[in-house]
Simulated scan of single mutants.
Amino acid sequence: MSWQAYIDTSLVGSGNVDKAAIFNKEGTSVWAASAAFNVSPDEIKAVVAHYADTTEPKKIFGSGFKVAGEKYVTLRADERSLYGKKGKEGICICLTKQAILIAHYGETAQPGATAKTVEQLGDYLIGVGY
């Protein structure tokens, strides 16, 4: 399956995600993205920095983070997952062995269903070596 197919079928196609992107683990290359979902180089650099942060509590809890020009309050930040919320919308980010999955959900989505969708794709990719 192509990386774009993971976006279109596994994430957006689930109905739990309205836009998404997949980057390499270093955040230097976009492997696939939804139309008009533009994560800036500085934004992905901050996400990558979160995963390198070993402080407790993680700095991202105090600062929040931005994705596609929108600022999110950090809800969860651990070695694998980063979740954020802005009003009724949110972001679920999952780190795999070689990729970073970034998924946005809109006002009508259930955050738990979105997280489950993203984490399941993350589990699958880890299982196949990505």
Score class of each variant (00 low, 15 high):
C94D: 12
S63H: 08
G62L: 11
G87W: 02
V73P: 00
F37V: 14
N16M: 11
S2P: 11
D53V: 03
G112C: 07
L121Q: 05
G15Y: 13
E56M: 12
K45A: 15
L121S: 07
S10C: 07
I100L: 14
L82T: 01
Y6V: 02
A99Q: 10
K71E: 14
V48T: 14
G15R: 11
I93E: 04
I7R: 00
S2Y: 10
S34R: 13
F37I: 13
V30M: 09
A33S: 14
Q4M: 09
S2T: 15
L121F: 04
G15E: 13
E43I: 13
S10M: 05
I100P: 00
Y130T: 02
Q120G: 04
A36N: 14
A33I: 09
K85G: 01
A33V: 12
A68G: 10
R80V: 12
T117Q: 08
Y124C: 03
A33E: 07
A103V: 06
D78P: 01
L95C: 02
I100H: 00
K116Q: 10
G90A: 06
A21N: 12
V12Y: 04
D123F: 05
G87L: 02
G127Q: 04
Q120H: 08
F23G: 06
T117S: 12
H50C: 08
A5P: 00
I100N: 00
F61S: 04
E56R: 14
R80Q: 14
L11E: 03
K116F: 06
E119F: 05
Y105V: 05
A33G: 07
S10L: 07
E107Q: 10
L75C: 05
Y51F: 15
A5D: 11
C92D: 10
Q120V: 07
G106W: 08
A21I: 14
A20D: 07
V47I: 15
E107I: 02
E26T: 15
F37N: 03
S29W: 05
I7Y: 00
